[in-house]
């Protein structure tokens, strides 16, 4: 019996894919450890130092406040940006004229550097949650928009014709024909915007907020507290992985169960 099969018997969740993901994580940690060994601790904290720093801040009111406000901003940004992108994308996918009207907006929103949006939002909204949520929504919406339009354009024309024949209403067409058909590209877009959203929220907080993980990162940088800086990075990765693996993937899996 091979080592893999022996391990699999012991650990039921251990699939071949999971095994290789675990190997990837090990390599990442090993690389980080080796790199930190040869680098001054003021530049790079070791995994152990980062873990200790994380242990030190978790549960403190400082951690809770900054963690929860970032989580809320990220959630709000993804949901509002996702909804705007989905609604506009659906309208544009179904109507060529709407798509053409929105084309210049799409082009600008996808081409503009995030930092420009951050600076403008700071000017318009000042510091705080409004500004961060605005930036996240504005940067997330075009990605969902593009994926929704592409998805709708790829829906099987024969199914659309069948829906017309049996007089499916507008809501029914969206709910039963278009949305399930585009859930694949939309799921991929949601994963993408979650990762991008976290980066954008933290960047915006770093540049123009008095709280949140981005703000905490700025403080640790000023204090040259590198282990805590890495601890906050681990927290960010944790948030993204919870969004992706505990929320988005199961939802996506539920909607594409007919393919399994």
């Amino acid at each position: 019996m091979s080592l893999f099969h022996w391990l699999r018997k012991k650990l039921l969740f251990l699939t071949r894919a999971n095994l290789f993901i675990a190997i990837g994580f090990m390599l990442l940690l090993a690389g980080w450890q080796v790199l930190s060994f040869y680098t001054h601790e003021i530049l790079l904290a070791s995994p152990a130092q980062a873990a200790c720093a994380l242990w030190g801040i978790i549960g403190t009111s400082y951690f809770n406040e900054n963690f929860l406000i970032t989580l809320w901003r990220l959630f709000f940004g993804i949901v509002s940006g996702g909804l705007i992108g989905f609604v506009l994308g659906t309208a544009a996918g179904l109507n060529e004229d709407i798509k053409n009207i929105l084309e210049p907006f799409r082009w600008i929103m996808l081409s503009i550097p995030p930092v420009v949006v951050v600076v403008l939002a700071m000017l318009w909204f000042g510091m705080g949650s409004k500004m961060v949520a605005f930036i996240t929504s504005v940067l997330v919406a075009p990605i969902v928009y593009v994926n929704t339009v592409k998805g709708i354009e790829m829906v099987d024309e024969k199914l659309v014709e069948m829906a017309r024949l049996y007089k499916f209403g507008f809501v029914m067409r969206i709910k039963d024909v278009y949305t399930p058909a585009i859930i694949g590209p939309l799921g991929a877009a949601m994963v993408l915007i979650t990762c991008m959203g976290a980066r954008v929220v933290i960047l915006a907080e770093l540049m123009g907020a008095n709280d949140g993980i981005g703000y905490a990162l700025g403080v640790t940088r000023s204090n040259l507290d590198v282990p805590q800086l890495f601890a906050w990075v681990l927290v960010t990765l944790g948030i993204v992985s919870v969004f992706e693996f505990i929320l988005l993937r199961p939802v996506e899996k539920h909607f594409i169960r007919w393919k399994l």
Binding site: L159, E161, L165, D176, P180, I256, W258, K259
Partner: peptide
Amino acid sequence: GYVFQEPRLLPWR
């Protein structure tokens, strides 16, 4: 009612 050459069923239903 229309029965097409191919069944045209919604694959997700």
